[in-house]
Structure formats: structure tokens, C-alpha cells
Design a binder for these strands. Structure first.
Lengths: 229, 229
DNA sequence: CAACGTAATTTTGAATTCATAATTAAGTCA
DNA sequence: TGACTTAATTATGAATTCAAAATTACGTTG
């Protein structure tokens, strides 16, 4: 709900940050490959200057790695990174839950409840894509209710890193079922405005997600041994 | 004092990020003022391209704000920002404490103990500058012991934002005394490898710091009413 | 033919240039 | 004088250029 009259003027480099982010998250730029600078310039119809500025920013997000004199490379999600990021994300989501319980309005709770119903519906339909979109919306709604922009930025930056590739679009049937039950709890504690319980649940939720992603990464690793073509 | 001979493996823009960061933290670039692009280019002997790349990165750290067609401005620490950042920093430091307890070596505990003794000494000497440096080293040592690079990066980015200007170099006598006592506890729980207690203590420590900084900001605000010269 | 060294090509990093937007200065008129 | 226009100046954003580094292609030699 942005009611401000200010004209949003996006600079080119900012626009490119968004576009490149999308390309990376959609794996149109593949992990481990080199960012094709010249090709992207042609594709977007821009010069190298703003594109390179955008790459510097994406490097701070950890989406690309800059190698001096060798260009930018799309980073890969490693097991080590997942083991690092999820605990941090867990702590931040837990805080988000606590703050949200203190500040969320009744109307916002109803919004989350509606999203939750949608999510359950997607689960029952076994529509994974829809499920993940609504799932994210729920976490985002709680984050918004926490009324802390810094927390939002931090969470989203880390989430972004975990969203590369399609790990999250892969869950075992049992994990999926568990996740839905965890979300039942999340909604319950949020509606009761029980910050401590919500924090605890979100922490557990994140840890379970971590384990699930790790499992998937390992299965991927075993499927295709590195270095062979 | 020209230290530019150290530039070897770092790209120019990265070096400039560091240099500008230093200028901002030392208030050589003052909050609320415009970043003098041309002057800095002359000063560092570089062209605008790498400098502007660095500014894009600093904007993601929240140290400068980019206004389209109007240049980069050094951001100010506001009360609202402090109220946002410290809770997040608290959650992260708490996690850092928990992880550190699980992973820290005996040797590292002794290092922290030594730093702590140094800090107490600085306190007794009423040497605020020395105190703050050692204080930071202690927090950093715990962070290192947590063995989580993502956590380190996140914490340091937020700490950086709170380090602008000299807020932290200002404490009431009673707050200083309390802070030292909190640090006694921190050392104690760390040495006992009691993660839960350490987390709790760090959380409280951060909240007290938040209150102290807010108090100082308010006194500053009352001293010099905004908008008047 | 494989390993090495060298030349050609491409890519990168950074300076420079150029068009445009913003700011400042100067001029006009009530 | 002071508000409003308009011109001159300056600063910004982005394209282009250029030197240096890396990569590739090629040829030589053992």
C-alpha cells in the first residue's frame, strides 16, 4: 500500500540488478558459469558500465563472485553455505515472529489465515509451484507485520541466496506433509499472538527446511558426480 | 601518509569501498552531506567509474543513499534505524554466542579471556577509545568461534551501520559500569560453554546498548534542534 | 605428437567522452 | 526589492575508448 506521490525513478544499474537477479534465480544464468557480460549488454541494450555496476552489487548479495581480471561467475549453492545460512535465517525469522506477534493487526492475521488456506489448498492439489509462492507470501506477511525494515532486508537477502536453482521446489512427500503441519502451528501461535511459541516453531521450521535442502543437495551430488560430463 | 602501495590483488573498486567506508566511519565524510565525487577522484587518483561502482556497493550497506541524478549522500543514523538494527543485531549475536559455545577451542577461550582483561584495564584507565577497540575484538572473537561466515558478514554489516559517527564512543558512567559487568557474564558463560545463558546475556547486552545509544541520540537532538543554524 | 613458447585475439578494468538533468547565475519585469 | 524566466555552468549517468591482462590459436622444437 504505497500511497506516496513520489515519482519512482529507477537508475539503470538498479533495474539491471533486478533483471540479473531474476535470471540467476530462474537459472537462466546457470550456477558455476561465467556471466556473459557482452551478451547481456546486447540483450538489454545497455553498455558495460551500468551492467558492471550491477554485478558489483550482486557480488555483495553473494549471487555472483568477482574474479579479478577473469570476470563474474554465478555462484553455486553448496552444502556448506546451506548449513551456514539456514541457522541465521532461523534466528531472523524467529525474531520476525516475535515482533510480529507484538505488532500485527487483526486484519493482517486474517490475511495470513487466508494465505494459509490457499497454501493448504495448493498442498491438497499437489501444486508445488503454487505452494511455494503462497508459502513465501506467508513468511513475507509475518515479516511485514514485524515492522522492521532492516530485518526485512536481511531476511530477504539470505532467502534470495537460498532460492537459486530449484532446491526448494523439491520436497519428499513426508517433508511436505510435515511442513504443512508446521504451518498450522505457525498460524495458530500467530493468531494467539504467542511470540515465544511462534519463534520456536519458526526456528524448528527453518531447521527442518535446512535438513530437507541438504538431503536434496546430497542426492543431486550423488546423481551427478562432479567433474564428469 | 600514503598507503596506496598495498593495492595488489584487490580490484580498485573494492579498495575504494574500504577507503570510503573508513572515511564515513571516521566522519571525514559527514552524515547528511553529499559525497564529493570529483574531489574523491582527485584525492585517490582514480576516475569516476570505479568510484561510482564503490558507491553502488556502499548503498547496499546503507552507508550512502543514491538519489537519481542528484548523486550520493552520506546517510545519517536515526533513532528509528537504531531501534530497528539493534534487535536484529541482538538476535544474530545471540546465535553467535550459542554456536561459539559449541565450537570454541580452549585456546580461543583464553584469547577472549586475555582480551577481556585488557578491556577491564581500559575501563579502569577510563580510556574509552581503547575500551571500544578491545570490546569490538571480543565480540569479533566470539563471532569467529561460531564458524559461520554468513553470520559474520551479516553481523559486521549491521555493526558497521551503527558505527557511523561517534555514538558508541559515548556512554554514561553507570552504563559503562553495567557494560563491563555484562562482559564479565559473557566471559563466564562462554568459558562454561553455556550457549543458552550466553545467548540470553548477549541479547540483553545489545538491548542495553540500544537504549544507551538512543539516549545519546536524543540528547544530541535536544542540544541542536534540527533545521536551525 | 606432445609439450612448450610465442603471437593473435578476446576480455577485462578503468579512463575518457558525451548527452542530459540539475543547479546556479543573470536578467527581466511587476 | 523580489518573484519569475531564462541562460550558463556544473554534475550526473551511461556509452565509448584504451591499456593491460587473460585466453586462445598457432608454430616450433625435441
Amino acid at each position: 500500500m504505497d500511497t506516496s506521490q513520489t515519482i519512482v525513478r529507477k537508475s539503470l544499474h538498479h533495474e539491471l540488478v533486478d533483471r540479473l537477479q531474476t535470471l540467476i534465480l530462474n537459472s537462466e544464468l546457470k550456477p558455476g558459469t561465467k556471466v556473459p557480460e557482452k551478451q547481456l549488454c546486447d540483450q538489454f541494450g545497455v553498455s558495460r558500465t551500468p551492467l558492471r555496476e550491477a554485478l558489483k552489487v550482486l557480488a555483495t548479495y553473494g549471487l555472483v563472485r568477482l574474479e579479478p581480471n577473469r570476470g563474474a561467475w554465478v555462484t553455486q549453492v553448496t552444502e556448506a553455505e546451506v548449513e551456514e545460512v539456514f541457522p541465521v535465517l532461523g534466528a531472523l525469522e524467529a525474531l520476525s515472529g516475535e515482533l510480529a506477534c507484538a505488532r500485527i493487526t487483526d486484519a493482517e492475521i486474517e490475511e495470513v489465515r487466508a494465505l494459509h488456506a490457499q497454501m493448504v489448498q495448493s498442498y491438497q492439489n499437489r501444486d508445488l509451484d503454487a505452494y511455494f509462492i503462497v508459502n513465501q507470501q506467508i513468511h513475507r506477511a509475518i515479516l511485514m507485520a514485524a515492522r522492521n525494515g532492516t530485518l526485512t532486508t536481511s531476511c530477504e537477502a539470505l532467502s534470495l541466496r537460498m532460492q537459486r536453482a530449484r532446491y526448494l521446489a523439491n520436497m519428499s512427500e513426508s517433508r511436505w506433509s510435515d511442513a504443512v503441519q508446521e504451518h498450522e502451528k505457525i498460524l495458530h501461535h500467530l493468531a494467539a499472538r504467542d511470540g515465544a511459541k511462534l519463534a520456536e516453531t519458526l526456528l524448528h521450521h527453518m531447521d527442518a527446511k535446512r535438513a530437507s535442502v541438504i538431503k536434496w543437495l546430497q542426492s543431486q551430488r550423488d546423481d551427478s558426480p562432479s567433474g564428469l560430463a
